[in-house]
Simulated assay, not measured.
Amino acid sequence: MQYSIENQHLKITVKQTGAELCRIQSTVTGKDFMWNADPSVWSSYAPVLFPVIGAIKNGFVKYNGQEYAVPRHGIVRNNSNVVLVSQSTDSLTFGLTFSEETLAIYPFKFEFQITYQLEDNKVVVSHQVVNHGSDEMLFSLGAHPAFKCPLHDDEVYEDYYLEFEAVENDATWLLEKDGLVGKQTKPVLEHTNVLHLNAHLFDNDALIFKHLISKQVSLRSTKSGQVITVHYEDFPYLGIWAKPNAHFICIEPWLGIADSADSDQNFETKEGILKLEAGKTFEAAFTIEINE
């Protein structure tokens, strides 16, 4: 099932399964801004990442002497147990709560909610995590939205670039074949705030940035100037990814990161892991801004 809301600028649609944003459309021009999830290329739109991001070493984490096979990108993605919690004229809230099924692969009594709210030409994506257990809860949280690129029929992928709000000096951490973060880095942003897109930019998988100054990045075209800006003040890591030669670009704010190749697999020592006290609530949000 899918749910839609709209205002004078935008219409958005969200799949109940996985609480996945699957469409951002201009109500003025009718233009679509999200990737169409072509199954022959990549069959997702914008997976929700919780309670892990990316790959887990050997497919499991260790916690209190037990092994838990948390799936890649977590347990919300593609989950048909996600429910619609509330709907208003300008917002949709979806939720997933712990169960015997989740406790078998993730040992915490969580409540997860994600809200999509329209504010003028912006989509505000808010996350809320509640720890209903008696122990400290460990988790990561992230987004994986894929934006259509190019946006216009008379453009090509190479017409587009990412513009960061600040001049950056940051390298990508290279992923190994199993999706784990290696020890080697590769220069990407050197005294610049611009990253030009090309068909081979992601030949070695995602670009992973740990030390960006910027808290927003815009997708721009040298021809049309059209812009999508992602504001991610609450998220310290950023992933940029696409399938090679695919017509999309993922801009991924992360609170957490995939396992490193030398990880000891202990959940408590996982890089970027968040810790939430019993009975407490965690909140984080990012914003997608559409400028036509």
Rank of each mutant, 00 (worst) to 15 (best):
K215F: 00
L207M: 08
V194Q: 11
V188E: 15
E165F: 02
L207A: 08
H211F: 00
H200A: 07
D178P: 12
A166E: 10
L174R: 15
I213E: 06
N193D: 08
F164I: 04
D159Q: 14
Y161W: 09
N193V: 06
D178V: 01
L180I: 02
K210E: 05
V181G: 00
H200Y: 07
H211M: 03
I208W: 04
L195H: 10
L201K: 13
L174K: 15
E158N: 15
I213D: 03
W173D: 05
L180F: 02
F209G: 05
T172L: 04
F164H: 13
Y157M: 11
V194R: 15
V194D: 04
Y160W: 12
N193E: 04
K210A: 05
D159V: 12
A199L: 06
E158Y: 14
T172W: 02
D178F: 00
V188L: 12
T192Q: 10
I213G: 06
Y161E: 03
L180C: 05
D178W: 00
D203T: 14
N169T: 12
L212Y: 07
V217A: 11
E168G: 13
L197G: 05
Y157R: 15
K210P: 06
V217W: 04
V181Q: 00
L175S: 09
K210I: 00
L212E: 06
D170I: 02
V217R: 15
L162Q: 12
L207I: 09
L207K: 11
E158R: 15
L162A: 10
L175C: 07
E165C: 05
H200S: 10
Q184F: 08
N198A: 01
D205N: 14
I213S: 10
A171M: 07
K183W: 03
W173Q: 12
Y157P: 15
V188Q: 12
L174F: 03
Y160T: 09
E190Q: 14
L189W: 04
L212N: 05
H191D: 12
E176Y: 00
H191K: 13
K186Y: 01
D178C: 04
I213T: 08
V167W: 01
H211K: 13
P187Q: 07
I208G: 10
W173K: 15
A206G: 07
E165G: 11
E158S: 14
V188Y: 09
E176G: 04
H196L: 01
K177H: 05
L197T: 08
V194I: 14
P187V: 03
E168R: 15
